[in-house]
Design a protein around this nucleic acid. Structure first.
Lengths: 337, 337
DNA sequence: CTGTTAGCGCATTCAG
DNA sequence: CTGAATGCGCTAACAG
């Protein structure tokens, strides 16, 4: 089905000009009730569908937003995507999906592709690009919102918004909860050293310790891959060398699940002997045994807020309301009641 | 950043015609090595990016494929999306993501939207629309591939491809495995009655019983919601009324996890007293205890095959290789060793 | 209320 | 090897 009906076809069979047809299509006034109805009927009969591309060329707007994610099959990002899509589609925008496959050069390509596609705005998630190379790319888009990344204040005069999770708060909430339950020796699986969120969660961890008067002990902190295996290994190393630990705060839920398994292997009962707290509240968290106490971050809210912010910017908002920080919420389950 | 550099700008500053610029952009011959290099340099300097929309209007091709899914945040569909994206982007196509939110009227809207956007092809996942309303919509697209749904043979002369999982085979593999391990009284949590895959899995279940000479007993079969809670409830009803059951084959992994929990609640040891088999091999499957024996279906392969099929159709393949049936694979873990 | 005239940015004839 | 002319389908000023 290649030969589409065009506006000209409608105009011809209706015996009017293109302009008149255009008016009824776009619901603009200046058409008599009668001819409008007649044209609408013809449009129905001929099953006319306006061409977005022609319209885009004329209006210079595509009605498409670019969504760049490292991996759409990662539940975190598909959750974000869902949120973005919700508010985008509510406002008449479609999403062009770009998977970078965690690859920097592909991220660059995608950003350029989106420029060629003339998308009206871009939501960029977890950009792996360094500031120097990212900025020129973003400069070529009229509206951009970053998710999971914040530009250093003053590092750019571009109108770039951002939505991030308050990881420091999350780290603090988790640690405070453990302290409140009487734990004084709390281990921390800190995730990949390059991870910003890991660093911020650690800040929260330290802050909570400090305000409780508990000295910080770097021996209780261990990096780990953000995976079940990573958590398993790190937890084992930590617990074997420091049997005095009564609690573990983990970079994410996957690592926490690993920690759970390690405790089982070592014959440590949870939460009696070791309490475990995760981060993210992935689907899995409530299904493992014992169910995981964790910091809940709403992925779809990340997305919907990002989209809302983007639409705001596209609308030409000049205010400085460019950065959002979403608070995580501690969900208490049996792994650390 | 609204005022893009155009081909005309390049042509002017290079002192050549539009045509020449067009030729170097599209890597066509008919340009002297010298001018080509000169123009390429100017393109670099001016940071020219061709406009996809203008090009689309001229060529009648967008380089965009539509991807329609019920819910992108569902790991099943984001997995499929990943697969589709992989082969699409390999072949220079982008993806327009459409979330129907499991809503029939939105599915219709999306299909129309994709027509207006003039996408080159559509991958439609798990369509909820009835044949009568679906066909006219699909007829307006030049290339369509269905995922998780197959049109009745001869029910349409449209060149529509499809990729589905062989659920009957899956049901048979799972059941045969249990039989081979000595089970004779095997329960089946059959999922939602409206589910095609559930019906097919049941066919496989029955076929396996039959070829083992085990009589089919409808009392051993119970519908359930495809959720943890659904599986939990159905498993309880089944096990309480039929203590002779020594194994459960479950509609999906979520239901299987529910069954696992029920067994624990009832004090039944897995797999000694009750063996449990799931379906899908979601991420969760290997992480629960005991790890789930299950039928693995590759979501990304579903997607990549769909995309490949679509590209084939778009290329004008007239062969009858329109339907693919992917075999699931039994993954044996500790819940049914 | 309605129609005319120009583009939007590029590709594709067909001539030079 | 290079260029001029035409059109893709639609919108946006302007005129009537």
């Amino acid at each position: 089905v290649n030969n589409h009906v065009t506006m000209a076809d409608i105009a011809r069979t209706a015996g009017v000009s293109l302009m008149t047809v255009s008016r009824v299509i776009n619901n603009k006034e200046g058409v008599s009730r009668h001819t409008r109805l007649r044209i609408e009927k013809i449009i129905e009969e001929l099953e006319y569908r306006p061409s977005s591309i022609a319209r885009s060329l004329a209006t210079q707007r595509t009605g498409i937003l670019g969504l760049v994610v490292p991996d759409i099959s990662n539940p975190f990002f598909s959750g974000v995507a869902r949120g973005v899509d919700e508010v985008a589609s509510e406002n008449g925008f479609s999403l062009l999906l770009c998977n970078t496959e965690e690859d920097r050069s592909r991220e660059i390509d995608m950003l350029q592709l989106l420029e060629e596609k003339r998308v009206d705005g871009v939501v960029l998630c977890s950009s792996r690009l360094e500031h120097k190379v990212l900025m020129p790319l973003l400069a070529r888009h009229s509206a951009v919102v970053l998710v999971n990344r914040r530009l250093a204040p003053g590092s750019s005069d571009l109108p770039i918004g951002s939505v991030i999770i308050d990881d420091e708060l999350g780290g603090k909430l988790a640690t405070q909860h453990l302290i409140k339950r009487g734990h004084r020796t709390i281990g921390f699986l800190s995730g990949p050293p390059s991870s910003f969120s890991g660093q911020n969660r650690k800040k929260g961890y330290r802050a909570a310790l400090k305000s409780a008067g508990i000295p910080y002990n770097s021996k209780f902190v261990r990096r780990c891959q953000p995976t079940v295996e990573g958590g398993q290994e790190a937890a084992r190393l930590l617990l074997e060398s420091h049997p005095e630990l009564t609690a573990l705060f983990c970079y994410n839920d996957l690592a926490a699940v690993g920690a759970l398994q390690t405790c089982t292997d070592l014959g440590l009962r949870i939460p009696e002997q070791v309490a475990v707290v995760g981060y993210d509240d992935i689907f899995l968290a409530r299904l493992v045994t014992p169910a995981l106490t964790t910091c809940q971050v709403s992925r779809s809210e990340l997305g919907s807020n990002a989209a809302a912010l983007l639409l705001e910017r596209m609308g030409g908002c000049t205010e400085d309301c460019r950065n959002l920080t979403l608070p995580p919420k501690l969900v208490i389950r049996t792994s650390a009641p």
